Simulated scan of single mutants.
Amino acid sequence: MGTSLTTEFWERFTVLLVLALAMTAILTAVFTTLFDRFTARLRSHRSHGTAPRIPHPRTRDDRPTPVHH
């Protein structure tokens, strides 16, 4: 015994589908914005720390003195 899908079903289905798509888009935008703010805050917080050490290039004077026997 099969049932046919009525126009009322399709109307409700369409409304729920549109609402689900809208909610997905809105929540994605909100969480993306919050995540961007959070990562920007972390990056700015890290940049206020000490500067990373940059090794200086080795010169002839940096080499150990050779020992001759």
Results as ranks from 00 to 15, higher is better:
2 G>F: 14
2 G>M: 12
2 G>E: 14
3 T>W: 08
3 T>F: 12
4 S>I: 14
4 S>H: 15
4 S>F: 15
5 L>G: 00
5 L>E: 11
5 L>T: 11
5 L>H: 07
5 L>S: 09
6 T>S: 14
7 T>R: 10
8 E>Y: 06
8 E>V: 11
8 E>T: 14
8 E>C: 04
9 F>A: 02
10 W>I: 11
11 E>H: 03
12 R>F: 09
14 T>M: 00
15 V>P: 00
15 V>C: 03
16 L>D: 08
17 L>W: 01
18 V>M: 13
20 A>C: 13
20 A>Q: 12
20 A>D: 10
21 L>V: 09
21 L>T: 07
23 M>Q: 03
23 M>H: 04
24 T>I: 04
25 A>P: 04
25 A>N: 05
25 A>I: 08
28 T>K: 09
28 T>F: 11
29 A>Y: 12
31 F>C: 07
32 T>W: 06
33 T>N: 04
33 T>K: 01
34 L>H: 02
34 L>W: 01
35 F>G: 09
35 F>W: 11
36 D>L: 09
36 D>K: 06
36 D>H: 04
37 R>E: 12
37 R>I: 12
38 F>D: 05
39 T>E: 06
40 A>H: 05
40 A>T: 08
41 R>A: 15
41 R>E: 14
42 L>S: 08
43 R>F: 08
44 S>Q: 00
44 S>F: 01
44 S>P: 03
44 S>Y: 03
45 H>M: 04
46 R>E: 10
47 S>Y: 02
47 S>P: 00
48 H>T: 14
48 H>W: 06
49 G>P: 00
53 R>T: 13
53 R>A: 14
56 H>Q: 15
56 H>D: 12
58 R>F: 08
59 T>K: 10
59 T>S: 13
59 T>D: 05
59 T>H: 04
60 R>F: 09
61 D>I: 00
61 D>K: 09
63 R>E: 14
64 P>M: 04
64 P>E: 01
64 P>V: 04
65 T>P: 10
69 H>Y: 11
